[in-house]
């Protein structure tokens, strides 16, 4: 009788225990590569070559790997380049897509769905379909191998996802908030600017966080559109570094951590936004 009475409790404890055991195991396994990167970035080459057990923590912390990569290898310039590409791209994409998101969320017109489908389809197409024409177009406009060229492309390409995202959010705003001021004689621009945009701040932030990470992490478009080393972003810088320092694991590890720090920080700070942004289209509605 006693055991039966304790049954549900014991079962619950077991369940909790299983949760912690499995969760710890799977998280540890999944983060092992990142942990190894952190350890390796702080080791000397002698220590790395001395043992193939890269999963052991460094005996002495060699922070100078980071300062060397930052200063001598020039990671600081690559990070700055990425920053100068990412921030205007994100701001631009948010501003422009808030217009299309607004139009698709609040107006009834014949081609509404068609325009939406165009934006969604565009965000999923293989990049290879765009590479040659975008290269040619940038070249014709003298935007190739310039920062504004990459920024403009990022803004345009990200419009697909951003429009979809903002339109979905704006549809949750009650229609009466648009109609009431309209009856009072407010212009469409005023409704967008003074009513809908202030209400959309949180979703703009969510989108901004997501876009920041994506554009920061972009490799392909800089590869296609940028040739000058002085303009290259950190992803390309890292790929180059791999060629030069291929056997210096500690240096490439320090470089990759420097390249990862900004998106990682943004994710940790704004995690809630991040997750809600990624599941657009996965939830009903």
């Amino acid at each position: 009788m006693e055991t039966r009475k304790n049954g549900p409790d014991a079962r619950k404890t077991l369940l909790t225990l299983l949760f912690y055991v499995f969760s710890t195991l799977i998280v540890a396994l999944w983060l092992l590569p990142i942990l190894i990167a952190v350890f390796t970035s702080l080791k000397s080459m002698d220590e790395i070559m001395g043992s193939s057990k890269m999963w052991t923590p460094p005996k002495v912390l060699h922070w100078e790997n980071f300062t060397r990569v930052w200063n001598k290898v020039g990671m600081s310039a690559y990070v700055l380049n990425t920053f100068l590409i990412t921030v205007p791209s994100v701001v631009g994409a948010l501003l422009v897509s808030s217009l299309s998101g607004f139009a698709l969320a609040f107006y009834r017109f014949r081609l509404n769905k068609a325009v939406l489908v165009l934006f969604i389809a565009g965000m999923l197409i293989p990049f290879q379909m765009l590479m040659i024409p975008v290269f040619r177009l940038s070249d014709a406009l003298s935007l190739r191998d310039t920062r504004p060229g990459v920024i403009l492309f990022h803004i345009a390409f990200q419009l697909g996802f951003c429009t979809f995202f903002l339109r979905n959010f704006m549809r949750t705003i009650p229609f009466s908030l648009v109609e009431a001021p309209r009856i009072d004689g407010a212009s469409e621009w005023t409704i967008y600017r003074k009513i809908i945009m202030p209400l959309s701040i949180s979703s703009l932030a969510a989108l901004g966080v997501l876009e920041f990470t994506w554009i920061w992490n972009d490799l392909l478009w800089s590869l296609v559109l940028i040739q000058s080393d002085s303009l290259k972003p950190v992803t390309l810088g890292l790929a180059n570094m791999q060629g030069e320092f291929v056997s210096y694991y500690n240096m490439t590890a320090a470089g990759s951590i420097i390249a990862a720090i900004a998106p990682l920080g943004v994710f940790l700070l704004f995690q809630r936004y991040f997750i809600s942004g990624l599941t657009v289209g996965a939830e009903k509605g």
Partner: peptide, 21 residues
């Protein structure tokens, strides 16, 4: 949060890490 971390890394970083794995 921890499990999700790999998703925030660029392939440039991920590729570099896995190269020495």
């Amino acid at each position: 949060t921890l499990f999700y971390l790999p998703m925030t890394l660029s392939f440039a970083v991920i590729g570099t890490i896995w190269m020495w794995i």
